[in-house]
Design a protein around this nucleic acid. Structure first.
Lengths: 352, 352
DNA sequence: TCACCAGGCACAATCGATTGTGTAAAGTAA
DNA sequence: TTACTTTACACAATCGATTGTGCCTGGTGA
């Protein structure tokens, strides 16, 4: 900047203001500065700028890890949205460890990020380390694994709706004895998926049968076992709604091992849209978690907070509508498919 | 810092030096400063520090995208290694677009990162934008998709070795007519995998038969087609080495459709260790690309450059040894498996 | 003609940490 | 005792950009 100022015979003030389009600089001067800046390929030092302004163009992300299908996709969405808005992201992994999560938080604070996006580690039970962020007035948005309550900003998938969509779809396919492979009920996502299942059954006037709900840890093996026990029932189910794709896969394989045709003899649907669900035979109907949209929504919310700048509005919880992906493992009545796939576009903005 | 200085009645110089363990500060004073810093939970402003020192604790990453299996795993490895060394990473996606790659590079430069890790976009044919990085004396390391030549720092997988390992394994299983589903030969990775295949055959004294090499674009569909044409040969192969897992999957499915038993009638191996290779029936033998190790190796190399600080050594190319993962799709002689899985541990450091 | 206003620009302080140089006090050797 | 090191700390400049305040000039209205 000093070079530009010298060459044009003006002060650095003028250069700075010309580049940031300040009103007190004449249009002629602005042009000259811009042209010279281009000629010298001037790159502002973001550090200096951020130091002075007290705010960088960086967003911090803390995720448990960057692997599997979910988190990378969310991060992809975040980076894309952030970059579009002129921000860059600095990424941290907590490795499911609170202590690491705390350390990451400190690091992001000392890096003077403009805002922080967090998906909690599994071992995070105490949330006080986030108070430090709030007290600094730094925007904070949780996604997927969030702090419960309505005094935080958060973006989640509507798992209950997902469970409901899935179950409704199976009902529309003519299934009446729909089993549910449930996950650990202390985890919200699985509790909500099960609730959606129950909602859909009630809606259809079908009584819930306890023997059709099997609790698993969502692994492929447990899916296999669960299927085995279900098929051994006096009156086995004609459909399975699994709260996870791996579990659904195990169930599918076991059904086929026992000589059942899927979906004719038993329909199957999963949850999460894992990559492999499109390559199995038959492909598995599942629920897409809209990972990228989640990332984008989180950034959008965060940047609103950033722009509000010290005058934060009431915390918001955004709930994304899941998308039902109908594949061959569940289609028994092709004509009814269209009806199942309605209304998957708009996001819901819950009140408060 | 000013607060600490005031409270202790010393200058900020002393505080700064005490915290960075400078020799000109007495041990007594250091203790006092450290204690007070802890008490007030002092967090240094990394921006200010970086501005003054001209170097931040940030590493920049540019990848084509953060999805699929490969890049997220590498990023995972990078973040882990960087964080262990006290660095944080700021991540950018080029979306396979040179222009975006160039923009990302500028951003990282203006963010004053300590070094940059790059995996090239597919559309990058001109590498001049990287000269700017070099001319600033900023450490630069390529990984996976690299600039060819021995005047750059790079970390790659030894694809040729991978092809060789795979083919050798099939030979050890007693296969003699091994077909190869090759990828686009203008891409180095596929060219090298094919070369490894040829090497292993030559090594075993088995003549190469052109009709056993099928060129595909590595999709599942083309794997299926390729298998169909191979099985229609007068003398069909007894094994398939596919240069990619999706392609191998297509081949596997077609073989099974035609009533062949895998691996008894035909053995199959793939490449990349995609997630689905463990859940197919049978599971698919493949080559692991050591994504995390690649990230770690890249960081290690980059940090060496950073520490060398202006006295860069001769550029280095690190070549990672691929790992053969023997699964059921290829095991015909269980006794021979052990022999196939040897020597997968050490990385190779090529000269120069 | 005089006062007032707005436009256009420069001065200098500032963000928070780092570092070369300067300078006392204390310790050592001759 | 004198001279010379060490040790321990302070001063002040510095990194590069931003910004409140102030000054000057040309223009407008009375």
């Amino acid at each position: 900047m000093a070079d530009l100022a010298r060459e044009l015979g003006v002060s650095m003030t003028t250069i700075s203001r010309a580049l940031s389009d300040h009103h007190s600089i004449g249009p002629a001067m602005k042009q000259k500065v811009l042209k010279l800046a281009k000629k010298y390929n001037y790159q502002p030092n973001r550090l200096a700028s951020a130091l002075r302004k007290g705010k960088s163009q960086l967003l911090g992300i803390i995720v448990p890890y960057i692997e599997g299908r979910f988190f990378p996709s969310v991060v992809h969405g975040i980076e894309t949205a952030a970059s579009k808005a002129g921000y860059n992201v600095i990424i941290c992994q907590s490795n499911e460890d609170v202590a690491q999560e705390r350390r990451n938080l400190e690091i992001l604070l000392s890096a003077q990020v403009a805002g922080i996006l967090v998906s909690l580690s599994r071992t995070t039970l105490d949330f006080r380390h986030f108070d430090k962020v709030r007290s600094r007035g730094l925007p904070l948005v949780f996604f997927d694994r969030i702090v419960e309550g309505d005094n935080v900003n958060a973006v989640v998938l509507d798992d209950q709706e997902g469970g409901c969509l899935s179950t409704r779809h199976l009902l529309q396919q003519g299934c009446r004895r729909i089993a549910h492979l449930a996950g650990p009920q202390h985890l919200n996502i699985y509790k909500n998926r099960r609730q959606g299942y129950l909602d859909a059954l009630r809606e259809a006037g079908i009584p819930v049968e306890e023997e059709l709900m099997v609790y698993t840890n969502m692994t492929q093996e447990q899916g296999t076992e669960a299927m085995r026990s279900l098929l051994a029932l006096p009156s086995p189910p004609d459909a399975i709604f699994a709260a996870g794709d791996y579990c659904a896969l195990g169930a599918l394989q076991e059904a086929q091992r026992q000589g059942l045709r899927v979906p004719q003899d038993i329909a199957i649907s999963g949850f999460s849209n894992e990559t492999f669900t499109v390559i199995t035979e038959p492909s598995i109907t599942t629920i897409d978690q809209r990972c990228e949209e989640m990332g984008q929504a989180a950034v959008r919310l965060l940047l609103e907070l950033v722009d509000a700048d010290g005058n934060p509005f009431a915390p918001r919880q955004v709930s994304l509508r899941p998308e039902l992906l109908v594949r061959r493992s569940s289609v028994r009545q092709p004509d009814n498919v269209a009806a199942s796939v309605q209304g998957v576009a708009a996001d819901v903005l819950l009140p408060q």
